[in-house]
Amino acid sequence: MISWMAWTLPVAIFFSTIGIILVCMTVYELHSPCVERKGFLPIATTRGDRLFIGLLASAYFHLLYVGFSDMTLWLPLGLSAVWLAIVLRWG
């Protein structure tokens, strides 16, 4: 039934992580609703907006990295995690 989806472990981990982040964000949001605020990003954002901006920027960063170098992917992954934390906290 789902064999045609050709699941692999890394992709499964990727989507689980996204899923867990979304669930956590929802619970956090229900527990303490967030207010829109202005950080170093040019527009006022909510937590969800910052998460989206962080993830999208990470995706583009990975594409650039893959396009221009053959080195390991752990490096951009680590940098992206740091970037995501920065955006969520101060963005």
Binding site: W4, M5, A6, W7, T8, P10, V11, F15, V66, L73
Partner: peptide
């Protein structure tokens, strides 16, 4: 979307012959 992500990291010959190729 999930399926496309799966396809994009594998070399798929048929249902049972798929190899992980990373990026």
């Amino acid at each position: 979307l999930m399926t496309v992500v799966n396809y994009s990291v594998q070399d798929i010959f048929d249902q049972n012959n798929a190899y992980f190729v990373g990026a």
